[in-house]
Nucleic acid binder design. Structure first.
Lengths: 209, 209
DNA sequence: TCCTTGACTGAACGACCGTTCGTTTTATTG
DNA sequence: CAATAAAACGAACGGTCGTTCAGTCAAGGA
């Protein structure tokens, strides 16, 4: 992930953030303490701290790193699918695969942060809300494009469907973490597929999802 | 809520737990610190601590208090609806109303705890998982009963639908807390209604939900 | 070669954490 | 009312938290 010609500081910063995203995934952004993170990365508290200047900035940097990772794991590959229904399904499928894959052992850190900080106003809450809103708006846009392509009927409500798919994605992420049951992903996939079926022409293929 | 003839100890314990559920709702079960809780209830740390013996026991007692409240706000009234589709809709509707009502200002504390502790094995995680599983199993049973009553077709999969409704309920709770947008509840209600519509006889009334 | 700059360290800070202890106050009961 | 039990207290414990600061060390440019 780090550019090969990056300075020494940027290199260790990236190493810190990689560890930080894992901890945030399992223990949350508050459980991500500077002392523990310093020990895990083999450096001093003060040395690590200097890279961020405050705990809040460390939390924000961690979330930004997660967002970048989501872009590479979900959005960039999914957007190679042709515009329309296929692209919509690709984003749903990729996000679920991302949550299932174990790239973050404790599930999506942004999802965790959105629950952890929804009662704590401030920049961290705002940033996670932005990320969540972005995902939902993207889904809504993809539904709209599938309608424009004639693959979904006029009755399909983009905001409504985006809301539902978003809830099903987060639900699978949460259920998997809480119960350890990987069937959650299959159930969310099925729910999305069957919901879309109501808005497609009778013979339509709702491919690999 | 407390029995009128309860001892003094039980009374203050109930008062502590009422405050604790509010804090847990907004700041989570880890944010619920004994010092802050003591200050909020106007007693000393040691005095409060003695009621529980450990922080973990305080957390468990808080969750038990929330569960009792959910029973009174959701399950008991909803189960007065006649068995079948109406009872299923009543549970969904009541749970959403509970999440929207502000009985817990930061949303459902059990939902918050399930996210906060899903990466921390132990009694607290186990208890929240039990509560969540109970809700899902109840929903599945109600779908089954609606099928037996002939109100839902044979194709309706109780576990699948329970999973979906559960995800939509948690999704509304989370979206409302994060975005402050009460439309989330209407969208979850609509999603549940339209999903059930696919399994009902053409003219069926999907009443007040 | 000297000097600057950036990265990092070790020690310390005040604040708060959960928890323990001994004592004092308050309820309950005979 | 007196005796006993329960409840609440203040002070302190070791530990961790985020943060600050002065100092070390190595790399890079003039």
């Amino acid at each position: 992930m780090p550019a090969p010609s990056a300075s020494k500081g940027a290199l260790t910063r990236d190493a810190i953030l990689q560890e930080a995203t894992q901890v945030a995934s399992e223990l949350g952004l508050e459980g991500l303490s500077i002392g523990r993170l310093a020990e895990a990365t083999g450096m001093s508290k003060a040395g690590l701290f200097a890279h961020f200047g405050s705990k809040e900035e460390l939390q924000l940097a961690t979330l930004r790193a997660v967002r970048d990772r989501v872009a590479q794991e979900v959005f960039i590959p999914a957007f190679q699918a042709p515009r329309g229904l296929k692209r919509l399904l690709a984003v749903c499928d990729r996000w679920l695969a991302y949550a299932e894959s174990g790239v973050f052992r404790g599930g999506c850190p942004i999802a965790a942060a959105s629950s952890e900080f929804d009662g704590r106003p401030g920049p961290v809450k705002e940033y996670t809300a932005e990320c969540m809103a972005e995902l939902r708006q993207t889904l809504a846009r993809l539904v709209r494009e599938a309608k424009e392509a004639g693959e979904l009927s006029k009755e399909a409500d983009p905001e409504q469907l985006a809301y539902e798919f978003h809830a099903l994605a987060l639900g699978a992420n949460g259920a998997y973490q809480l119960f350890g049951d990987p069937k959650a992903f299959a159930m969310s996939r099925r729910a999305i597929k069957e919901r879309l079926r109501a808005f497609t022409a009778p013979g339509t293929r709702l491919a690999p999802l």
